[in-house]
Design a protein around this nucleic acid. Structure first.
Length: 214
DNA sequence: GACCAGGCACATC
DNA sequence: GATGTGCATGGT
């Protein structure tokens, strides 16, 4: 059991907000799709796009990989950057379909070791570190800590590291401070997003933060 | 009407 | 290598 400020903040967040039940999504494949669509985008807009895909019964790997990019773009329009994201999602789907399972549950892909999967995901044009790690953590339940803009903003404001610190260093900072457990990484990231939405938007450092003011 | 949202690749210096 | 920019809809 590790005992330090970062872990204490986690426990404080969890006690305050409770479990966040991430990632919202019915299937592993839906989580993968959502991870691409939510790039720099509010989740409610992603939900609209997911609904569009479900309404046309397209939310399976076999069906979606065959959909022309222009059609895909039209369906995911509510997420913004839709031409870009349609191409990125298509790149990923083709990669998955050709290299791993052709099944929506991606079972054969799930047999591979985490670092191999991460390297493979990062090789896809349009899949960066955060998207790859989100897929690993939330779709494949691997113990990989996800660093996003909120994590960077909040913890740099509280002098844990500089705002410009590279992704990999921030990730290492959290991993070194926490027990290596999927459950904790899962909830911590979700709780950071929750906290950010509540308190950390426009003020440099929130004066009535329920977590950091202690 | 400005500002922001669960990034990423690429150009330019 | 670091800094800036395009991508774009929808909510506050």
């Amino acid at each position: 059991m590790k005992n330090n400020r970062i872990f204490k903040i986690y426990k404080r967040l969890y006690a305050y907000y409770g479990p966040q039940f991430w990632w919202p999504g019915d299937t592993r494949f839906e989580i993968v799709v959502g991870a691409v669509l939510t790039q720099n985008t509010a989740w409610r807009n992603v939900e609209k796009a997911i609904r569009n895909l479900k309404a046309k019964n397209l939310l399976t790997l076999k069906k979606l990989v065959r959909l022309p990019v222009t059609k895909l773009a039209e369906l995911i329009r509510p997420t913004g950057f839709y031409n870009l994201k349609a191409q990125r999602l298509h790149n990923l789907l083709v990669f998955l379909f050709q290299n791993y399972s052709q099944e929506t549950d991606l079972v054969s892909m799930n047999r591979l070791p985490t670092q191999r999967l991460r390297k493979d995901l990062l090789s896809v044009k349009g899949i960066g570190e955060e998207t790859a790690d989100s897929i690993l953590l939330y779709a494949f339940n691997r113990p990989v800590f996800v660093v996003d803009a909120y994590t960077r903003r909040i913890f740099s404001r509280h002098h844990c590291f500089s705002y410009k610190t590279p992704y990999s260093e921030i990730q290492r900072f959290f991993v070194q401070s926490l027990p290596k457990r999927t459950k904790i990484y899962n909830e911590y990231h979700a709780l950071i997003v929750r906290l950010a939405k509540d308190h950390c938007k426009k003020v440099p450092v929130c004066n009535n933060c329920p977590i950091f003011n202690y």
